[in-house]
């Protein structure tokens, strides 16, 4: 690896410069680069994560959306105004739909997740927010599930997500789920192993509350 100031700094005297050249070489010899690179699976996971992030709305849009969600919770009248203000581009797309259900999920480790769902022509628009989901490495992610059938045996994935680096989560997912036939909503922690089946690592769960 090279760097801009390859040689010793200008304000070093000759003795210091020689000491740096000598000991620098000795240190690199004592701690050689193992050359061990990431595995192909790690590289693939990183590429997926980077590519997925390219498709996300700009960060400013996410922050605006997060603020919008908070205001919608605070009051419907304010919420209408915010929804109008964020129309246009991706934010406008995400603001479509009519309110249909809410859910409060909780987990054994203290996670609390608020979910709001709206019906839209392409399916459901699900807004998920939490500040208690732990940050996970990119080899893992959270996945939102809608369980249907009376026994809850059919799991339909509504999408995957990560909290941000401060543990805050505000994500909007579009999914072909039906809250009217859903017995429970769950969030699991999943390894990035390519398996479409839920891992069973339950993080939070709760019932659907349909809006009349």
């Amino acid at each position: 690896m090279t760097h801009e100031d390859e040689g010793p700094a200008d304000d070093m005297n000759d003795a210091e410069a020689e000491l740096e050249r000598f000991l620098g070489a000795e240190l690199r010899r004592a701690f050689p680069d193992s050359g061990a690179g990431p595995t192909s699976e790690q590289v693939a996971a990183l590429r997926d994560h980077v590519a997925a992030s390219r498709r996300r709305p700009a960060r400013g849009g996410w922050r605006l959306l997060a603020a919008a969600v908070a205001l919608v919770v605070a009051g419907a009248g304010i919420g209408v105004g915010v929804a109008t203000s964020i129309r246009g581009g991706d934010d406008g797309l995400l603001a479509r739909g009519s309110d249909e259900f809410v859910a409060e999920l909780s987990g054994p480790a203290g996670a609390r997740v608020a979910i709001e769902g709206a019906a839209a022509p392409e399916g459901r628009i699900i807004t998920l927010s939490s500040d208690t989901l732990p940050v996970v490495p990119y080899e893992q992610y959270y996945e939102l599930w809608f369980l249907s059938d009376e026994s809850g045996s059919t799991w339909v994935s509504a999408g995957t997500f990560h909290p941000d680096d401060e543990g805050n989560t505000v994500v909007v997912l579009h999914a072909a789920v039906d809250p009217r036939t859903t017995s429970e909503i769950r969030i699991t922690r999943e390894p990035r192993d390519g398996s479409p089946a839920p891992s069973g690592d339950l993080v939070a769960s709760g019932p659907v509350d349909l809006i009349d």
Binding site: G35, A36, G37, P38, L46, V50, A51, S53
Partner: peptide, 20 residues
């Protein structure tokens, strides 16, 4: 610009040093 090729390049060449 979140070019996956650029990320892979940096990831591969810096991985061992970062891990150490």
């Amino acid at each position: 610009d979140l070019d996956p090729d650029a990320w892979e390049t940096v990831y591969r060449r810096s991985y061992s040093r970062l891990v150490e």
